[in-house]
């Protein structure tokens, strides 16, 4: 095991208590190890000290008023959406959410073929996707809003043949919910491009 590996294991607390004691004794005796240890600590220290410079105080002071204003516009955006075109837009988003939360994909890894199959069976049109775009870009009708307890989408689920259990737990503050996105991280750039092109066509 190289000195570097030993140091990183020590800093990560991956050593047993006995290994730790041995490492600390070695650190006192081995000048080269001490040199490398200090160098690594120095780099990490610099990284930390450089990472939080002073922020513009005006920006900080304006954060809360801006958040309040955003909260207000979000409310009105949701109300507007619910009044005029909520079902389709919400459903499109939920279909996509269902896709991402579905258990239909093996080991949470989405393959290109599986996605294509899903998209072709979901009857999504370009118009649907445009509406989704509108939701995301203009109404800010995001995952947070979809998760609102005030919105009952049972009928919309039924209309699209989606069982609520397929959608899964949509609590995005829950770590489990975040974990379900795992497969997205496994999708390669080339698959992204292929799928995008398919949709455009």
């Amino acid at each position: 095991m190289s000195n570097r590996e030993k140091i990183l294991k020590y800093l990560s607390e991956l050593m047993t208590p006995e290994e730790e004691r041995e490492f600390e004794i070695l650190l006192e005796q081995d000048k080269q190890l001490r040199k490398e240890f200090d160098a690594i600590n120095g780099k990490l220290g610099t990284l930390k000290s450089d990472s939080e410079p002073e922020l513009d105080q005006t920006y900080l002071a304006n954060l809360l008023p801006r958040a309040r204003s955003k909260m207000e516009s979000k409310k009105s955006g949701i109300l507007f959406g619910l009044k005029f075109a909520p079902q389709l837009t919400a459903v499109v988003f939920l279909i996509l959410s269902a896709l991402f939360f579905s258990n239909g994909f093996n080991n949470n890894t989405l393959t290109f073929d599986e996605l294509q199959k899903f998209l072709s069976s979901s009857n999504l049109t370009a118009q649907d996707l445009n509406r989704l775009d509108l939701i995301l870009e203009e109404n800010d009708f995001d995952l947070l809003s979809i998760n609102s307890e005030d919105i009952d989408l049972t009928n919309e689920f039924n209309a699209f043949g989606i069982k609520p259990s397929d959608v899964g737990q949509l609590d995005f503050y829950d770590v489990t919910g975040v974990e379900d996105y795992e497969y997205l991280n496994n999708l390669s750039e080339s698959d992204f491009k292929k799928i995008t092109n398919e949709i455009k066509e």
Partner: peptide
């Protein structure tokens, strides 16, 4: 911190989804 972490990860995923659909 938990909320901030999760919302940051959600935000990254949401960006990925938008990129995924070329929005």
């Amino acid at each position: 911190y938990r909320i901030t972490s999760n919302l940051s990860i959600n935000y990254l995923n949401k960006k990925k989804i938008k990129k995924f659909f070329s929005f």
